[in-house]
């Protein structure tokens, strides 16, 4: 935890662990995310982040598929960097 770098979720490498710091995308979007477990301040682990297609993240013991568009509206602070070479 040497650095606390902010990034959008779709830019995080697989294996990265982060804390959600901001949701951009309006109230409807925030409220849909809240129901499935994603809220400001919660822990996220990126399980998969392919070059094309949806991401797979782990939040509150739940595996969630997120479209790239959706992931690009979620700002996070990384606490642990993933291995970017593990993707493909």
């Amino acid at each position: 935890m040497l650095e606390q770098q902010e990034a959008f979720l779709d830019q995080c490498a697989p294996g990265a662990r982060a804390v959600v710091s901001e949701l951009r995308g309006g109230r409807g979007f925030a409220s849909r995310l809240a129901g499935i477990g994603i809220s400001v301040g919660c822990q996220v682990e990126v399980l998969q982040n392919p070059a094309h297609g949806a991401l797979l993240v782990l939040v509150r013991d739940t595996r969630i598929a997120l479209g790239r568009g959706e992931a690009s509206k979620i700002l996070v602070r990384e606490s642990e960097r993933g291995q970017s070479d593990a993707a493909e």
């Binding site: 979007f29 849909r32 995310l33 499935i36 949806a54 797979l56 739940t62 595996r63 969630i64 598929a65 997120l66 479209g67 568009g69 959706e70």
Partner: peptide, 9 residues
């Protein structure tokens, strides 16, 4: 619609 989908165990 936004693609947000739970993958249940």
């Amino acid at each position: 619609a936004a693609f947000i989908m739970e993958l249940p165990i």
